[in-house]
Design a protein around this nucleic acid. Structure first.
Length: 495
RNA sequence: GCCCCGUUGGUGCAGCGGCCUAGCACGCCAGCCUUUCAAGCUGGAGAUCACGGGUUCGAAUCCCGUACGGGGUACCA
């Protein structure tokens, strides 16, 4: 069993494309077959620099390794169509079809084709090639050749009968070939079109199953005819549902982030993307959703594929990323966090780099279950005060509901004293002591701890208070609490 | 226009003729926990299974039609 992923280097790898790649990969790994990557670069005009690299990086990032393809030699090399074209493979194949009377050369100009199309549209007829060159005599063809007209090769579509193929997901699909036009298989620049290239290659490479996007259904009858023209057995076709944006239109750039690598850059883990992408249009049939790569491979089956299109649900993706983030061991998360925090747009420039790795590791538990994605800005906000000596504090924010400045300042001073005298500077003993102090001061925990939190972090929302004190250390904690008290008293004096 | 595919709560899925008074997850709401935010736990709202016909003792599940959505209709893949 052999499957392939055959991207075109015409842009940034899209989540929809990678989802197709992923399903192919999972299928291959499940069945113990081979997963082949083949680059379909036959459209020389739409080629985009760097696209191929990004496609391969995206595959690698998701952990979709290939058994044959770019950088991995195999018995069917080369795996790039422009290289295969240089070997004459497609010209030879096209010639074979011409010799069999299944294809013919066409010298119609793009201008004539446009005119034909315009007329068809005006007459409200189906658009497409009118087979003008199909029945040219040998004399006409030699005359064309003598003129040196640009030539394409077209496939001769049968005028009657029907084309049937079986789609694994949808059952037998029947098409009327008279609605299909004589399509181009070899372009005037000598490159094959998809309709020729992928068939020659899939046959050469022994591909047994083609899992591709639903948008290919309409051209599959063409492919079946070409297979028949060559006398080859077509592979099994599995047309995967496409991905839709929230507006139910085909997922595309205008829906925001759809390039897979953007998700990496925005702080999604590859495990999350792998799991999430696998669930778009597939399910194991049980109610499990959070699964490891191994579990997905093990449970995979073509029967679990769903023919209905799926909507890409970012909210659920974020939830799932949170699940994976929480599963990460502390040191692994620290490894991820350190470069983010050290980045120029991470922690404020005033904080010196490199960061103390052990200290970051100590801080990880404080933010661990509060993360959904790895967002530099958010992280910097959550952690900057641990790395600073002084924080920018708005005294008004320290004062809690039902308290005034003087009372808050005095409570903070008591806290400072307690911090000074605390025996074990650890979370639990501190909490015990502070709870007692809170009662003694006649304050609600909400008031006392709230004031302390703002005094220590300058934030209303922060990690658990006593863990924060421990991470800050005794000296800094005392200094911050005292400074907040002083600011409050000063403000009070002014007003 | 023509051809093709699809249609289960807001979203992702389960369901493959009786076990469905339609299950799970995300999201939403409420409660618990609690020093904030999360996480976690418990509970709740939310679907006449697009609609209309058939087939069948019995249909979300099979067939036909309609509506709606999507895809294709290139010397793009």
């Amino acid at each position: 069993m052999r499957v392939r992923y055959a991207p075109s280097p015409t842009g940034d790898p899209h989540v929809g494309n990678l989802r197709t790649a992923l399903l192919n990969w999972v299928f291959a790994r499940h069945a113990g077959g081979q997963f082949i990557v083949r680059i379909e670069d036959t459209d020389r005009e739409r080629m985009v620099d760097g696209s191929l690299d990004r496609i391969l990086s995206a595959l690698e990032w998701l952990g979709l390794d290939w058994d044959e393809g770019p950088g991995v030699d195999g018995p069917h090399a080369p795996y790039v169509q422009s290289d295969r074209k240089a070997l004459g493979k497609y010209a030879k194949a096209a010639q074979m079809l011409i010799d069999n009377g299944q294809a013919y050369e066409c010298t119609c100009t793009p201008e004539r084709l446009d005119q034909v199309r315009l007329r068809q549209r005006a007459e409200k007829k189906p658009t497409g090639y009118d087979s003008y060159c199909r029945n040219k005599s040998d004399e006409e063809r030699t005359a064309d050749k003598a003129q040196g007209l640009a030539t394409v090769v077209r496939f001769k579509v049968p005028l009657e009968g029907e084309v049937v193929f079986n789609d694994v997901l949808r059952g037998p699909l029947t098409f009327d070939p008279s609605l299909l036009q004589d399509f181009v298989i070899l372009k005037s620049d000598g490159y094959p079109t998809y309709h020729l290239a992928h068939i020659v290659d899939d046959h050469d490479m022994g591909i047994t199953h083609v899992l591709r996007s639903e948008e290919w259904i309409s051209s599959t009858p063409r492919h079946v005819m070409v297979y028949e023209g060559f006398g080859w057995e077509p592979p099994a076709f599995v047309h995967l549902s496409i991905l839709l944006g929230p507006d139910r239109a085909k997922l595309s750039k205008r829906h925001g982030d759809t390039a897979l690598l953007e998700f990496r850059d925005k702080g999604f883990l590859p495990e999350t993307m792998f799991n999430f992408l696998s669930l778009l249009g597939w399910s194991a049939g049980d109610d499990e959703e959070v699964m490891t790569r191994e579990q997905i491979v093990e449970k995979f089956s073509l029967d679990g594929l769903n023919a209905a299109p799926s909507i890409f649900n970012i909210t659920k993706l974020e939830w799932m990323n949170g699940v994976y983030l929480r599963q990460l061991p502390v040191h692994a998360l620290a490894e991820i966090l350190i470069p983010e925090l050290e980045a120029p747009d991470g922690l404020p420039a005033s904080i010196s780099r490199p960061l103390d790795r052990d200290y970051v590791t100590e801080l990880v538990p404080l933010v661990h279950e509060r993360l959904k994605v790895i967002d530099r800005e958010e992280l910097a906000g959550m952690l900057a005060y641990f790395f600073q000596d002084e924080i920018e504090l708005d005294p008004a924010a320290v004062v809690q509901k039902g308290m005034n400045e003087a009372a808050t300042a005095s409570a903070l001073e008591s806290a400072a004293v307690a911090l000074e005298s605390a025996e074990a500077f650890e979370s639990e003993p501190l909490e015990e002591g502070f709870r007692a102090l809170c009662v003694e001061l006649g304050l609600k925990p909400r008031q006392f701890f709230g004031a302390l939190r703002v005094a220590l972090t300058a934030r209303r929302v922060a990690p658990p208070l006593f863990d924060t004190m421990v991470a800050l250390g005794r000296e800094r904690s005392i200094a911050r609490v005292r400074r907040a008290a002083a600011l409050l008293l000063r403000d009070q004096a002014v007003s």
